[in-house]
Write a protein that binds this DNA or RNA. Structure first.
Lengths: 202, 202
DNA sequence: GTCTATACCTTGATAGAC
DNA sequence: GTCTATCAAGGTATAGAC
């Protein structure tokens, strides 16, 4: 019923979309304070005025939109990888491998799309912090669902989903900082063993 | 043989020490780009000129010193808590509780002393990134030693130490962003169970 | 070692023509 | 919706008196 979405490839995105994408990518790499409105405008091929036209709330409003975009992107990636495996232990290990691959292929610069912005604004920019908290909560949902599907009781699955996201997050940070796939590799292996502890014998 | 160190309490620290402490604390909260030299100087009760006197390399050199300070502080905290327990599973769970307590007591603003600076400069400020990578590596040592003491083989202990640090790091980030002790609580519980898997039956 | 003054640049944000 | 000009404020860093 909706008009067909063009699935735009490159420069034919509307201005607002280019701005959000660019802001999300830049803040992922440089954090909130390290990313300027001017840099965003330039790299998005937009003018300074356009940014404030679409985001009258300025940098804070734009940062919230960028965080939400990163939220959706990673949630989709999670769902995609989790959907390819029946065994949740295998699925989570695959997620860790996917993160390691993306990190390495980017030259260790594209880590979690939310973490850098979130950590640099925690307790200082409430709107951004709130959006980041929602992202972390969203990401637990597909993990929780996968664990529950395998027969793990709700309470255990809920708790495990917390730890899965925390561990992937921390291992991605460790891998990025040390420029090594080892932390994510170890995390995938250990999360799989941990989940195995909770999975009912079939 | 060295002159007795005064263990200074408050305002009677030498200038360089006040600057490093202040820089470490501010960058922990606001990251590298969010923390200005002027703010550091003001809060350290030092002058602008003093900062550049002690750190001719400017902000980068000061950030490296701040990271190293955070490195040492957290390493000592780890050693202290780990030293209080014979069972490494209990010890790691206690570490998670300690982190949660510190985070909550600070009003959720004092997270990892290195993470915010590290993540915001990854791939952009090589000296800072290097210092952060060293910090992550240092923190694994006391964990590795504790695991080995309990009889876990070297290779397993090495790998587990990676995951312990990654998970604590990620759970602290999750707890800080969501302003909840739950991620750290779950991480402590699950790390303890994971370590239990590797510990030889006595 | 400490302090002040200052050079020079970039920032976030606004106004108003088109 | 787009673009340019402009502002006040704050950034890093340097120079030089004391």
């Amino acid at each position: 019923m909706s008009t067909t979405r063009p699935r735009p490839e490159d420069g034919d995105l509307d201005t607002r979309e280019r701005i959000v994408r660019t802001a999300s990518r830049l803040m992922q790499r440089q954090g909130y304070d390290g990313t300027g409105i001017k840099q965003i405008a330039t790299e998005a091929a937009a003018t300074h005025g356009s940014v404030y036209h679409f985001f009258p709330g300025g940098k804070q409003e734009l940062a919230v939109a960028a965080i939400r975009r990163g939220d959706e992107e990673f949630a989709e990636e999670l769902r995609r990888v989790l959907g390819r495996h029946d065994d949740p232990a295998e699925a989570i290990a695959a997620c860790a491998r996917q993160l390691a691959e993306g990190l390495r292929d980017s030259g260790w610069i594209d880590g979690c799309p939310v973490a850098s912005t979130a950590i640099g604004t925690a307790g200082r920019v409430p709107d951004v912090q709130q959006a980041a908290a929602e992202a972390f909560a969203h990401w637990q949902e597909p993990v929780f669902a996968a664990l529950r599907r395998s027969g793990i009781p709700d309470d255990d699955a809920r708790e495990l989903a917390h730890t899965v996201i925390s561990t992937l997050e921390g291992a991605e940070l460790s891998s990025q900082v040390s420029r090594s796939e080892e932390p994510l590799r170890a995390a995938g292996k250990h999360l799989a063993r941990l989940i195995g502890l909770y999975r009912p014998k079939s």
